[in-house]
Design a protein around this nucleic acid. Structure first.
Lengths: 102, 102
DNA sequence: TTATTTTAGACAAATATTGTCCAAATTTAT
DNA sequence: ATAAATTTGGACAATATTTGTCTAAAATAA
């Protein structure tokens, strides 16, 4: 299972960059970036965008990983998760339909 | 689309109770309960449990609603939501499998 | 070993959530 | 219509959660 952290770490290793260097370029503390790679902290959306740009990764891939991990974290110790996700999707579709027909 | 707030309000009206009364019984400010019913605030899990008990509603129904609304809120203005949910489910299943085989 | 890179942990700063109160608005009853 | 009761909105303080920063320990490479 490839995590957001894995993706970021791979991207950095591909380019053979050290944390200090990336940190300077994207203006994020190197310790934070290390934690992103180890999934100990979640980047903010703005950080995601900057990292995607810097590593030349598709932003959408990172965002999908970001949200799905957030949700997985929330439901990790919960029952009826597939039911919850099913209902969540229904509600989202309902809200979005509302928005369009506004 | 039946919300958690709808469920709580219906339950209260079924029993013909006023907010003040419920508030006293479950020890939650009546203004808060009003907001729960209008989906302006989310109850905490503890409050969910107390309300379910008081109204004699299945706790799991409320919890499913609670989580699914939380997720729907998070994804309301996001793209690729069904992809996100799909990936989220995969990750959850992965984590849970890990837990069992620990 | 020494130098470099990565990681862990503590802590303050910034955000977000929650509970409480009160008065305005709404509804119901007289 | 007025008065009484109920519901609701909004402001604010209290709490909790998340985030950024720093420092030094741990790990890795030279």
């Amino acid at each position: 299972m490839k995590t957001l952290g894995d993706t970021l770490k791979c991207a950095r290793e591909e380019k053979e960059l050290i944390l200090r260097k990336v940190a300077a370029e994207v203006d994020i503390d190197q310790s934070l970036i290390s934690k992103f790679e180890k999934n100990e902290r979640k980047p903010t959306m703005e950080q995601i965008v900057r990292l995607a740009k810097f590593y030349e990764l598709p932003e959408s891939e990172l965002i999908i990983n970001w949200y799905s991990e957030k949700i997985a974290d929330e439901l990790k110790y919960t029952e009826s998760t597939s039911e919850i996700l099913k209902v969540a999707e229904e509600k989202i579709n309902y809200y979005k339909a509302q928005e369009n027909g506004k």
